[in-house]
C-alpha cells in the first residue's frame, strides 16, 4: 500500500473581485505531491503560481475545493491552519524576509517548534556555507547569504512540505543555482514545490506544472517542452 501524498488539492479555485473586476487566479486544480517529490510550477506573470502556493499553504481561503496536508484537510480560515503550517510547512520566499534586528541564527529559529531545531540549523548552516555568519545581522551579509538564511528558516522545523516562491528571482544565475542545489540537497524527505520563472532552476524536478490563467495547462518532466494535455 503506497503512502498518502503529503499534499493534495482537489477542485481548487480562487476568484478575486466581483463583476467586471472578477479575476480567476486558480481554477479547478487537482494536485498530489508525494513525500520526497520535487515539483516545479512555471507560468507567465499573473498565471496564478504564487496564488496557488498560498492556497496550498492554507494562507488563502479557496473559493472552492480543498487542500489536504498529510491527509488532514486545511481549514478554510487561514488562521486556523497556523499550528499545522508552523510545524509541517517550510517557506522560501522570493525576498528572504529576514527580520532585520535578529541575527541569521535567530531568524532561522524564529518559528522553531522543537528542541532539535537549533542543532538542525547549525548543521544546515554548515552545509550551505553560512555557519560563520549565523550571529550576523541580515544587513551585513550578501543577497545570496540572506537567501541561504531563508533556507535555514524554512528547514528549521524539518518540515514535511517546502514551498518556495521564486527563491532565486533576486539572485544572479550562479548564486541562484547554488541556492537551488542547497534546497534540493537539504530538503530531505519533504515534498518540495518550487515556483519559478526560470526553468533552469528546476533541474532535477520530478514534475513541472505549467500554469496559465489559473489553469493547469500541462505537466512535464523538467527540461521537457510542455505537453498539450492537462494533468497533475
Amino acid at each position: 500500500m503506497s503512502e498518502a501524498p503529503v499534499l493534495s488539492a482537489r477542485a481548487l479555485s480562487l476568484v478575486y473581485g466581483d463583476g467586471a473586476r472578477r479575476t480567476t487566479a486558480v481554477e479547478a486544480l487537482d494536485l498530489d505531491v508525494a513525500r520526497g517529490e520535487f515539483v516545479g510550477l512555471v507560468g507567465p506573470s499573473g498565471s496564478g503560481k504564487s496564488s496557488l502556493l498560498f492556497l496550498l499553504a492554507g494562507l488563502r481561503r479557496p473559493t472552492t475545493g480543498r487542500v489536504l496536508l498529510l491527509g488532514r484537510p486545511l481549514d478554510a480560515a487561514p488562521d486556523r491552519n497556523a499550528a499545522l503550517r508552523r510545524r509541517h510547512v517550510g517557506f522560501v520566499f522570493q525576498e528572504p524576509f529576514l527580520v532585520p534586528w535578529l541575527s541569521l541564527r535567530e531568524n532561522a529559529l524564529v518559528h522553531a517548534t522543537g528542541p532539535g531545531a537549533a542543532a538542525r540549523v547549525e548543521d544546515l548552516a554548515r552545509r550551505v556555507g553560512v555557519a560563520h555568519l549565523l550571529d550576523e545581522r541580515p544587513h551585513r551579509v550578501s543577497g545570496g547569504e540572506r537567501q541561504r538564511a531563508g533556507l535555514l528558516r524554512a528547514l528549521a522545523n524539518d518540515p514535511d512540505l517546502v514551498l518556495a516562491d521564486e527563491p532565486t528571482a533576486f539572485l544572479d544565475h550562479p548564486t541562484g543555482h547554488a541556492v537551488m542545489d542547497v534546497l534540493r540537497a537539504c530538503v530531505g524527505r519533504a515534498a518540495l514545490v518550487v515556483v519559478t520563472h526560470d526553468p533552469e532552476m528546476l533541474a532535477g524536478a520530478h514534475r513541472v506544472l505549467h500554469l496559465r490563467d489559473g489553469r493547469l495547462e500541462a505537466t512535464t518532466a523538467a527540461g521537457s517542452p510542455p505537453a498539450t494535455a492537462a494533468g497533475a
Binding site: 513525500r35 520526497g36 517529490e37 510545524r87 522545523n157 524539518d158 530531505g188 505537466t219 518532466a221
Partner: peptide
C-alpha cells in the same frame, strides 16, 4: 517525466518534538 521517489528511497528523519 521522472517518477516521484518512493518513501523508501529517502532517508528517514527523527520525529519532531
Amino acid at each position: 517525466m521522472s517518477e516521484a521517489p518512493s518513501p523508501a528511497s529517502v532517508p528517514a528523519r527523527a520525529p519532531a518534538t
